[in-house]
Design a binder for these strands. Structure first.
Lengths: 225, 225
DNA sequence: TTGATGCTTCGGCTATGGTCGAAGGATGAA
DNA sequence: TTCATCCTTCGACCATAGCCGAAGCATCAA
């Protein structure tokens, strides 16, 4: 009887269309200004400002002032994770409209979830990494010795990542697939490295597109023989 | 810009205190009548009826008529999973009040999540099972050959479970711990079997209490030597 | 200083929706 | 049939909160 309101206050924040738009706009992990978010949400500046104040007060967002601008970002990957879970639920329960545009297909194929790879490619990555014995475990996904060697070879400074506060590996449920993909510091580093290598390019919004070279490299590296 | 409202409609349903109370009351997987839910939510019968109609229309609940009564239950484990995720988020962001009563401690120790074991014990179970090589994998958790033998020995009819539609193993994120516990048909069967064996008893609400015998048996079976 | 830009606050309008009393089925018991 | 129980529907009330126009700060540029 007592825990209902606890979740209700959070859920109510996600339950307003304007705020939901703001949050989904931030799901790619970037920080956006108030004006940008107002446009994304389809409301005026004042209205957006009000919503952002509430989301900030609830610690779902963090604000950062830079000159005349104020940048907002999600306060953590777990916020994005809850949003993805809600999308999944909305999909199963049929609340979602049937959107089969090309943009949607692109999103399902590969997209950013906060700061790491999600979609078919993201799930494929984690699945392959497990099959090859690079990664082990269930939720507290851990790196095997073989995995450490592999990712170091791939160009990732694991020691640096481990100095940070953020967990190295983290499983994150994918809304379009129904499996996990790899989040955490390693997931983020992997995506940056892929972008660096020219394997993948950021499109508009959350869309990621793999280059030809990227597809080949991806498969050669993670799905050998 | 388009997916915001999709999640908003679901989130808005969870965002009303009365409805959130109803849903958390159902998180133990049991089916409850309208009157019981009205009392749990602290509203009158008419009000609850209205809320239930909405939740039903959104496919978050399923209704079942039995004589003069109408029983509602969650439409699936994923609903409970989203609720747990929201509780976790609420906790991290500080929306939750500090509840450190004995009931809360009991809940953290062991509780029902829809129909399987959650809390410290639930996480310990999955962790131990992985360590012993009974279970393998990340999200699509799978049973190893060793695991099949073990759980059959434990008194679970795996073949019967596999005839059902429900996935055998499923990882479910725990809100109090920050790890996964075991859901799915196997998770449910395990809990029933533990209750059958007198290892664990249902308390009020979602609380589960391990008997002395249960603690010993649990540790002997899952955390040997 | 003056002006422009980005954001916040204030005030008032409006609509949405949660709430309950009262009345109306539906089911089961006597 | 008659009555009691469980639930749903209707109607009306009311509070919450989303929305925008207008005005007020804050920052930067010239």
């Amino acid at each position: 009887m007592k825990e209902g309101p606890v979740i209700a206050s959070v859920a109510a924040l996600l339950g307003d269309p304007a705020r939901a738009n703001i949050l989904t706009a931030l799901m790619d992990g970037r920080a956006l200004t108030v004006s940008e978010l107002a446009e994304a949400a389809g409301v005026t500046l004042q209205t957006a400002s009000g919503h952002l104040a509430k989301l900030d007060a609830a610690n779902l967002l963090t604000a950062e002032k830079q000159g005349r601008h104020r940048y907002f970002r999600l306060s953590g990957p777990d916020v994005a994770q809850v949003l993805e879970a809600l999308m999944g639920l909305a999909q199963r329960t049929g609340a979602t409209r049937v959107r089969t545009g090309p943009r949607d297909a692109a999103l399902r194929s590969a997209r950013i979830c906060y700061d790491h790879l999600a979609g078919e490619r993201g799930v494929a990555l984690l699945t392959a990494a497990r099959r090859q014995g690079l990664i082990d475990g269930d939720k507290d996904v851990t790196l095997t010795a073989k995995g450490r060697a592999f990712f170091t070879e791939f160009g990732i400074d694991l020691a640096a990542l481990e100095r940070g506060r953020r967990p190295l590996c983290r499983a994150c449920l994918d809304w379009s697939e129904r499996h996990n993909h790899l989040g955490g510091a390693l997931g983020a580093a992997l995506l940056s490295r892929m972008i660096e290598r020219g394997w993948v390019r950021r499109g508009t919004g959350r869309v990621l597109t793999f280059t030809c070279e990227g597809k080949e490299g991806f498969e050669a590296a993670f799905i050998p023989s």
